[in-house]
Computed example of a mutant assay.
Amino acid sequence: MIPAGATPSGVTPARTEAVLSRLQLLVTRKLDGLLQGDYVGLLPGPGSEAGESREYLPGDDVRRMDWPVTARTTLPHVRRTVADRELETWLAIDLSASLDFGTARMLKRDLVVAAAAAMTHLTVRGGNRVGAVIGTGDPARGAGIVRMPARPGRKEAQALMRAVARTGTRPGRSDLGALIDALNRPPRRRGVAVVISDFLAPPPQWGRPLRKLAVRHDVLAVEVVDPRELELPDVGVLAVVDPETGQLHEVQTADPRLRRRYAEAAAAQRAEIAHELRAAGAAHLRLRTDSDWLLDIVRFVAGQRHARTRGTVRAPRPAWVEGGAR
């Protein structure tokens, strides 16, 4: 919902260039050096390509046992892994009408573009390839999915971000399940998949495609939230309009019971979203329009690294590599 009379953000070339220039400066200054090595990312770990074998040592992952060598030598061996020389990252970006909403520092749409810029910056170096699929609204109303092929290089990444920022939205909600499934078909090389959305669509719609995606790729889900989606302020009668359907509603926010029920329903909805993301095996990053999103990304990266160092998080089959080839 957005306040009645408010208009969604306009997507003009001048505004796009100004926003992207500022984003590039912010991301470069604050995220450069955050992760060291040739391959950087939010899900650090060993490589995914098979390498040489060595004798088993206590603490080695038994899932990497090299049984043929073990049988020949009668001593347990494990297979080392090396990093892929080229990482392929795909972004699934939800730009449905519900993203044209914001009551704090920025619109949710602007935060989606910022998150996409940060993910692109973290993965594009070293000849890595970045591509995107974008959902622009309800397919029944003439919208659909825009595909941008994965290409290496910073210039290509900047062109991709300009295209994302200039993509307009149409009425209706994108089919988030179909958007995620666009990364499953056709099958792509193993890599990283980043899904950026407010995830307001019913979890049964997108949960299964996300689980299928996580079988082959490392998945990062970036959830974009505005504080007014979590609780209502006490401002009397508030006229709001649904950006996806155009329906107008009047809400009496002075009623404390209404505000309490709203907050409880919103908390339950977010808990269901978090549960579905965990069940799919996706890393979950929540960004809010009223907080420092770059600081949230830095904290998320540090938390992921610390948890894996201490062994408190089950390491998934990784595709992003910390420290380059091993």
Rank of each mutant, 00 (worst) to 15 (best):
G168M: 03
K108F: 02
L35V: 15
R80S: 08
T7K: 00
R228C: 09
V62W: 12
H275W: 13
V241H: 00
G207K: 10
R216D: 09
M148F: 10
G177P: 09
A118V: 07
V219C: 06
L210N: 09
V113Q: 01
V69I: 08
P76V: 09
G324S: 09
L111M: 11
L176W: 06
W320R: 14
L160T: 04
R170M: 03
R310Y: 05
L111N: 05
V133S: 10
P152L: 03
L179K: 05
V215S: 05
A159V: 08
R147T: 06
R299C: 14
M1D: 12
V192C: 08
L25D: 08
R29I: 10
P58K: 01
L23H: 01
A132F: 08
A178L: 01
A165Q: 01
E250W: 09
I297Y: 03
L122E: 13
P318N: 09
I2P: 03
G126Y: 08
R299T: 13
R162I: 02
A165C: 13
A4F: 07
R259M: 09
R79T: 01
W293Q: 07
R166Y: 00
G153E: 07
E52A: 11
T12R: 02
E156Y: 08
E223G: 13
R278A: 14
G303I: 13
G127S: 07
T289G: 06
P187K: 04
G137S: 11
A157I: 07
R228I: 14
E264I: 14
V235E: 08
I2D: 12
L230I: 15
G311L: 04
D38L: 07
D290F: 06
R190A: 12
A279R: 10
V19M: 05
L230D: 12
V215M: 02
S197C: 07
A159L: 13
E264W: 11
E55C: 11
H77V: 05
A159T: 06
Y39I: 15
L26C: 07
P76R: 13
V78Q: 07
L34T: 00
T136V: 03
T74D: 15
